Simulated assay, not measured.
Amino acid sequence: MKVLKTLAFCAFSLALTSCGGEKKESSIPTADSSAPATETTAPAGDNEYDPRRGLGKYDETNVDVSSFDPAMAAEGKKVADVKCMSCHKTTDERLVGPGWKGVTERQTPHWIMNFISNPDPMIDVDPELQKQLELCLVRMPNQGLSDAEARNVLEYMREIDGAK
């Protein structure tokens, strides 16, 4: 049962970014988008959802990606191998969920942290995530990542995208 939960989690964790086959561009706003990011958490159902930030406790003030940490990435790989890789590949190829290649270029670090640490509220309000759910047909489950695990997985994603 734990393996099934892990598979389900991995299936949708990045469906938001690359699920859908041939299309290489994401219509989800990216970190270099011109819209300013809000620093407050909008409650589910609120019309103030910020697609650059997502829903959760993470924002620009508490997710520092100014330098790459190989040790964190190695720990993130260990977590991902157990909780994510049964549904995701490190390439842009879709497995159950989308591949991870390029995710850190399409999404802000705090958006990724908010999504991987608590996907349900974001899936419920983010129109792009809802479109991905329709394509992938699997809702990413909450894997109960600790703050440190989520941050390490983010660092591993950054490594996949060439951070050094």
Rank of each mutant, 00 (worst) to 15 (best):
D32S: 02
E39A: 03
K77Q: 11
M1K: 11
A74L: 07
M72D: 08
E155Q: 09
L4M: 12
C19N: 07
A35Q: 06
D161F: 01
N142V: 09
S117M: 07
G54L: 00
C136N: 15
D46P: 07
Y58P: 04
D50M: 13
V63E: 01
A163S: 11
H88I: 00
I123K: 05
K101F: 08
D46I: 03
S26T: 13
G99Y: 08
F12L: 12
A11P: 13
L4E: 12
A15G: 14
M113T: 02
T91S: 15
C84K: 00
G21R: 09
E105R: 05
D32G: 00
Y49E: 01
A8Y: 12
F9P: 02
E93G: 15
M85F: 10
K83L: 08
C10Q: 13
D64F: 07
V138P: 01
N142I: 06
L137E: 15
S18Y: 05
T6D: 12
Y49I: 02
S86V: 10
S34F: 04
I116E: 08
L14H: 13
T30P: 01
D126P: 03
N114F: 12
E75M: 05
K83C: 01
E105F: 04
E25Y: 01
A71E: 09
T30N: 00
T30S: 05
L7F: 11
C19K: 08
R139H: 12
A37C: 09
K23C: 00
V79P: 06
L7E: 11
P43W: 02
N152L: 00
F115R: 07
V125S: 12
V3Y: 12
N62L: 10
I28D: 06
M113E: 10
L154C: 09
P121T: 11
P119R: 05
K2A: 09
C19H: 06
L137V: 13
L16K: 11
A74E: 11
P36A: 10
Y49M: 02
M72C: 07
F12S: 14
P43H: 06
G97A: 04
E39K: 08
I123A: 05
V79M: 04
Q143D: 07
N118V: 14
G162W: 01
M157C: 08
Q132S: 15
E22K: 09
S146G: 03
A11N: 14
G76E: 03
D32H: 01
M140C: 14
D124R: 15
D46S: 13
C10T: 12
A148R: 05
E155K: 05
S18N: 15
C136Y: 08
K164D: 00
E159Q: 13
I28L: 10
E60D: 14
A15S: 13
A150F: 05
C136M: 06
A71R: 04
V125P: 04
T90I: 15
I116H: 09
T40I: 13
K83T: 03
N62F: 15
A163Y: 08
Q107W: 03
G21L: 03
L7V: 14
V79A: 02
S146V: 03
P98D: 12
P70F: 02
T41K: 09
A73W: 04
D69M: 07
Y58R: 06
R94E: 10
A148V: 04
G162E: 00
T91Y: 00
M157Q: 07
I28K: 08
R106G: 01
K57S: 13
Q107V: 03
E93C: 10
